[in-house]
Nucleic acid binder design. Structure first.
Lengths: 231, 231
DNA sequence: TTACCTCCCAATACGCTGTATTGCTCAATA
DNA sequence: TATTGAGCAATACAGCGTATTGGGAGGTAA
């Protein structure tokens, strides 16, 4: 007795055309996810899903999640254009500073991945190389000090900007004044009278834009370098 | 028919004497765990276990894990002694800088919690208040710029130090030289000849201790402030 | 052509996370 | 004494990184 045909038999799982994968594709997808939804969106499961793959397939290309994050960081370093061959160390360091700041604004998660592990990817190394090369002092120890200090300032300042930006976004968007943004709690604290200077700052300071503040701080550092080494 | 006695009946769960709890106890336990094993050791389950309690009991005192982390951060701010009433703004800012650096060395996780959210706990606010008050410039905008720049440098520099320290610890302990520490990979990269300045730095720079480098950078910033505002 | 082997991928599984929900037990009140 | 309320423990759920397992396709040997 021949069985009747089953016309509407569902396709067997049907291989949703297993996309060929690569490290670049994976890192790219992870960066896209992180740009859109923050680092929380970067999980092996989600990255894989974005590439029509099962989570475990990624392990063929990337050993651990930490490695994926390292690759993402290095990719960002790759986006930063190196300083030109100008003889002016100030100009060179300014270029580097803005390069990092701009990259961090494009990829807000970048700054969160700084504390994990020193950056030794190829792009990070070339970035370091060109930065060091931009400061042509005779004394190599001085070069290290100067570059180290500028980088420290830049990372710290950018971290602050991003943090502030996130706070504004999460606490109701577009509050132009910080004290309004942090709402009743801050008002109450200031009302205690225990923070007179803080209160004065809140009320009397003109809220200058963040780019200008970044620039001012950078000027302090560069001026300090010039003063110390009398350049 | 009377049942035989069961002499070795296990005690019913027996209430392991439910320790009284408090926010301070919880935050204290969390800090201790983080100091010993890093932020990964701070989970509601582990903190609760350290206090002989079930995980869910903590929710009576702390709303979310983020709140717990905020409390930990504020506790650290509380440990930092404020600058004295000296009239010297340089001295004041130096004191603040070292206070933060020392605290971060005691609690390495502190620096990891900086990017999450602006610090507005009571101790953080007093810290900010005393810091601002230490810089008695007439122009309040200048005060903000200066304090902002110094804090940015300090946080960035400390982040770098901690990161380096962790890398040394994880890659085989006590390698005095960075290039040796990062092992064959770094050697290969330098051997490519693509990083001449980096190579020169690695080989020729004297490895000065991190405290001195921190100090030098801080001097740059303070000198720059003095130069810009001609003090 | 048929049998087998190998490699790649998917599925499953484990232990961990933060936290919502449920249920129990004891103390104080009506 | 009966009832209610509070506080805590236990359970449950969805997500995580990743180790392990299993199956199906492709190439090779008989």
């Amino acid at each position: 007795m021949s069985k009747e045909a089953v016309w509407d038999r569902p396709e067997p799982p049907s291989k949703p055309s297993p996309t060929p994968l690569s490290r670049e594709l994976i890192v790219g997808a992870a960066i896209r996810l992180a740009d859109e939804g923050g680092l929380d969106e970067v999980s092996f499961r989600k990255v894989a899903a974005a590439l029509n793959a099962g989570p475990m397939r990624l392990y063929g290309y990337v050993e651990t999640k930490d490695e994926l994050l390292d690759l993402m960081v290095d990719e960002v370093y790759g986006e930063i254009t190196p300083p030109g061959k100008s003889a002016d160390w100030r100009e060179g360091l300014r270029h580097v500073a803005h390069g990092i700041r701009d990259a961090a604004k494009r990829h807000e998660w970048f700054i969160d991945l700084l504390s994990n592990r020193p950056h030794q990817g190829p792009h990070a190394l070339t970035h370091m190389e060109t930065t060091l090369a931009a400061v042509r002092f005779a004394n190599i120890d001085q070069v290290l000090d100067v570059v180290g200090a500028v980088m420290a300032y830049v990372f710290g300042a950018v971290r602050g900007e991003i943090t502030e930006l996130r706070a504004e976004r999460s606490s109701g968007m577009t509050e132009e004044q910080w004290q309004r943004a942090s709402g009743p709690y801050m008002q109450r604290m200031l009302a205690t009278g225990r923070f007179p200077t803080l209160a004065r700052v809140m009320h009397e300071s003109s809220d200058r834009d963040s780019a200008a503040r970044f620039e001012t701080g950078l000027d302090y550092v560069l001026d300090g370098v010039a003063a110390r080494h009398s350049l």
